[in-house]
Design a protein around this nucleic acid. Structure first.
Lengths: 357, 357
DNA sequence: CCGAATAATTTGATCGATCAAAATTCCTGA
DNA sequence: TCAGGAATTTTGATCGATCAAATTATTCGG
């Protein structure tokens, strides 16, 4: 494999100077049309491609974003982050941004990596996924002026701190909508299975249920369960709900894992008419016909990139941003209805099983 | 945030030349000890970090590997690639390699990206995941001398072509072991649910079952099903197997999705004693107590990196490699046993439910 | 048809590191 | 004590691009 052509080679072939070649690539509008096409032809004929590192060295920007992918991935729900990552790679590409991944054992380790990648000018900005209560990363990153955006609110901290750009999905609204939908479909007692408090995300989802369920406030505790995420804990929780005197006829869950568990419990207990709704709309949910609350990941990613880089391009916007625009976005999820949230008759009559929002 | 320190700054502080600083970092053994510590102290005190792009420009290597993450991720099994990706990032890090991800619509689009990333010296080598029959990427990459390693055999092509480095897991051996284990646990008729032929991976897995099942050859077709991957098709296939006159008492599946479907079918049909084994040992399998064949991803990744970069370091080994060492590795998976593959009595007597291989 | 203003192109310097080779220092043994 | 060779350190050039400023070409009004 011979040497790759450089600007110099292109310049020579097109009978112009290196800078003009560079201009054709970076600011075509300032080059005369006739020259531009000539240079472009030279570029094409040589198969020239700018050397990424040379460019990054000179421009002092890597046009690369870093993302930590963590090992945990408990249960099915990791799939959301997975989809997020995919969308991120996709949309980054259209802005000519690269995505670099790395792993870390914990938040501190993650910060080590962040520092290394940033100091080495390997990446310009970071995307944090899954923020949590008292997340040390957020403080460190803001203090150290590392550009970043998080998918997840700053739980427990100032929501509108302009130095922290974040995007999140309004789980409360999602669960509220799901609960109402179930009730409109005829459910009389909608229960909830979620995670132990305190859990920012989990508490919000439960709050959404509390706002919409028709169960009187004083009885709500009896109809809510707090368990670790997972299929088997979902099953256990659902069993205990089904054992209640006035058993619920529908359950909204904080995750598809829990919901899948609940479905299994319903089948095992021969209560197929129990309606279940999950959260995250994972592939598994689609596969088993589980209704689920879908996070608009396309929008989440688009918003995240916009907060970091503006409407287009790949220059990191200075932080704090101009006090005009908000530095965060809260997006609304939508319920995807499938068999699991409908009455059996629906299924029998062959009603469509998805998307009729 | 002030300007980052450079070799020059460190050199000045340590009273040496830039090159010595560079040597301390890249070839410490050639620097006198006293000088080395002095320089190291300067590095530490300034928090110096070599500028990645400058280094890449000079050394003409990016120390970066590219991986395509694809959008499909049908069913649960995407989780394997997910874990693979995670391990890859982890082990790459210990060799001081970076991992860059990108997406593509199809194989051709993927090659476009590959070309762009390679020509721009963005990445040195690629990792291909999920090879398939007549995979156009393999030919293109070898023809164009792009260093790569694939997780997956060159289905339908020369296995020992030294220009193609690959790692794969012997699914046939895995399914064979699982089938035998089921029979040792007392199963009399072990059936199989897999994917439609031709599917390299799927056909191998089915062959493993064929080699081990005690069902006579002439009856085997009746006890095997070929369906698209997915929970619901697993359920359907299992139902049809359970409807057989001499219904199987155990089923080995080509994926956890199918296996999960089979478990659901068993519960629905009130045949809880049906033993099921899946493939990939996904988190879902662990969650629902499904026995599954586990791919040794740590070893897969280690082997892949070794094939590309040798035992250590991050210099791409020239291809074809010296005719001494093999350019591929076939690894053996192992069965992780959980409740789903045991007789009910086991469960009742409280036997441990996992890992007692 | 000329000179000012504008457009287009080119030149020289630079980003931050490493390579290759030269220069210096340090040892060793006669 | 000193030559010769090894060990250590320094110097000059370079990787491939873009920035900033200088130069040349073009356009336009009077």
């Amino acid at each position: 494999m011979g040497r790759m052509p450089t600007v110099e080679d292109v310049a020579e072939l097109a009978q112009v100077s290196r800078q003009t070649v560079s201009n054709v690539i970076n600011s075509p509008e300032i080059v005369r049309e006739s020259t531009r096409t000539r240079v472009q032809e030279a570029i094409d004929s040589l198969g020239y491609r700018p050397h990424a590192s040379a460019r990054r060295l000179r421009t002092r920007k890597s046009s690369t974003i870093g993302v930590r992918i963590d090992p945990l991935r408990d249960g099915i729900s990791g799939a959301v982050l997975d989809r997020f990552l995919h969308k991120l790679a996709e949309q980054a590409d259209s802005r000519d941004l690269r995505v670099m991944i790395f792993t870390a054992r914990d938040a501190d380790d993650e910060l080590q990596h962040v520092r290394r990648l940033r100091d080495g000018s390997d990446v310009d900005a970071f995307v944090l996924i899954a923020t949590f209560h008292g997340d040390p990363r957020i403080e460190w990153l803001t203090e150290n002026d590392v550009p970043f955006v998080s998918f997840g609110r700053p739980w427990g901290a100032e929501l509108d701190d302009p130095r922290h750009r974040w995007v999140d999905v309004d789980g409360r609204a999602g669960v509220r909508e799901a609960t109402r939908a179930l009730q409109q479909h005829g459910a009389r007692r909608v229960a909830f299975i979620g995670w132990p408090s305190p859990s920012g995300t989990g508490d919000e989802r439960r709050a959404g249920w509390g706002e919409a369920t028709s169960i009187p406030a004083r009885d709500r505790a009896r109809y809510a369960r707090e368990v670790e995420d997972g299929v088997s804990s979902g099953t256990a929780a659902a069993e205990s709900l089904l054992a209640l005197e006035d058993a619920p006829d529908a359950i909204v869950c904080a995750s598809d894992s829990l919901a899948l568990g609940a479905m299994l419990a319903a089948r095992a207990a021969s209560v197929p008419e129990l309606r279940v709704v999950g959260f995250d709309n994972t592939p598994v949910a689609a596969a088993v016909g589980l209704s689920s609350i879908d996070q608009p990941l396309d929008d989440v990613v688009a918003a995240a990139l916009t907060l970091l880089f503006g409407d287009s391009g790949n220059n990191v916007r200075p932080n704090p941003n101009s006090n005009e625009e908000p530095t965060n976005r809260l997006l609304v999820p939508r319920l995807v209805e499938r068999r699991s949230s409908h009455l059996m008759p629906d299924e029998i009559t062959g009603a469509q099983s998805s998307g009729n929002h």
